[in-house]
């Protein structure tokens, strides 16, 4: 077999590479007949540029090794604990304006959403439970039910889910893009501890704002419930008495404490996702997703633990 190029007057690099791939498919060099000089030169140049592909380097993100991931997570938790313990010596690495900025971003700006969702939640809960309760003539007790479930469970849980979705993703994306841009490396070479400078202010902001968010959500939910109950014709004073009788301060503070724990879990996990951002443009998005998923899963997991704990303690 031979290639006859005698009719060919012009050939570009793409044409040359097509000819070469034909040759490669054939398995051996083909005699080229009648090519004009510029085509011969072009083919020689294209031939010289063909190099066997090197082995693909295995990157960290290519092989998500479970054992190493767990090891990394444990090491990171240790670093967070160390950062807290050594904070007096490293207090200058914690920048207070950062803390205020994160508290504003995670807390103040979330308030409208918290109020809206809390109110709707109270409204829906009250309405849905009123229908079956009415059959037993017990619709007054909807107030008790909603108050207890909001203060003990739904308030902190929903606030944590909102924190994970709104703020956890932002934490992970911010730290992730710093990682991609080598800013985290720069911190390390400046002997500034990245955990102290990047994670602690976010963690403190989350711990600070979560009880407030949960409390606001509780109040908004109770208002939603009150809306439904007054619609059913109950006077405000009756509803208030009912709530007062059902919910103890212990329910409220237990819930707020849970909220604090959920908030710290969300912050720690989303910062971990950010610090573990891989390479490439998709990595930051993946880190944000991991932060939200991890934050919500951890919150619900912790909530289960709290249920067992509170039950054992008889709270």
């Amino acid at each position: 077999m031979a290639v006859d190029l005698s009719g060919l007057v012009y050939c570009d690099l793409s044409g040359a590479s097509l000819l070469l791939s034909m040759e490669a498919a054939h398995g051996a060099a083909l005699p080229i007949l009648g090519a004009v000089p510029h085509v011969t030169a072009l083919l020689a140049r294209a031939r010289a540029s063909v190099t066997p592909a090197g082995p693909r380097a295995a990157t960290r993100s290519a092989s998500p090794n479970l054992v190493r991931a767990v090891g990394d997570a444990i090491a990171y938790l240790g670093e967070v604990v160390c950062a807290v313990l050594f904070l007096p010596a490293r207090r200058r690495m914690l920048r207070w304006p950062d803390l205020l900025r994160f508290a504003d971003q995670a807390g103040v700006r979330a308030i409208p959403l918290i109020i809206l969702l809390g109110y709707l939640m109270g409204l829906i809960l009250a309405f849905q439970s009123a229908v079956p309760m009415r059959r037993f003539g017990a619709d007054l007790y909807v107030a008790n039910l909603v108050a207890i479930s909001l203060l003990r469970e739904l308030g902190p849980l929903l606030a944590a889910v909102i924190l994970a979705g709104r703020t956890g993703s932002a934490f992970a994306a911010e730290i992730g893009s710093m990682k991609v841009n080598q800013e985290v490396d720069a911190l390390v070479t400046m002997s500034i501890d990245p955990v102290t400078m990047l994670v602690l202010p976010r963690l403190m902001a989350a711990i600070l704002v979560m009880p407030a968010l949960a409390l606001i959500l509780d109040v908004a939910g109770l208002l939603g419930m009150t809306t439904v109950m007054t619609g059913f014709g109950y006077p405000l004073i009756t509803i208030a008495r009912q709530v007062q009788a059902a919910a103890t301060p212990l329910d409220l503070f237990g819930g707020l404490f849970k909220g604090m724990c959920f908030g710290s879990a969300v912050a720690v996990i989303s910062c971990f996702a950010g610090l573990n951002t891989g390479v490439g443009p998709r990595a930051v998005g993946q880190a944000a997703t991991a932060a939200v998923v991890g934050g919500i899963v951890a919150t619900i997991f912790l909530d289960g633990l709290f249920s067992i704990l509170f039950y054992r303690l008889g709270l």
Partner: peptide
């Protein structure tokens, strides 16, 4: 030591 990275790596 002081290090300048290829990209600058300034804090954004």
């Amino acid at each position: 030591v002081g290090v300048m990275f290829q990209s600058g790596a300034l804090f954004g």
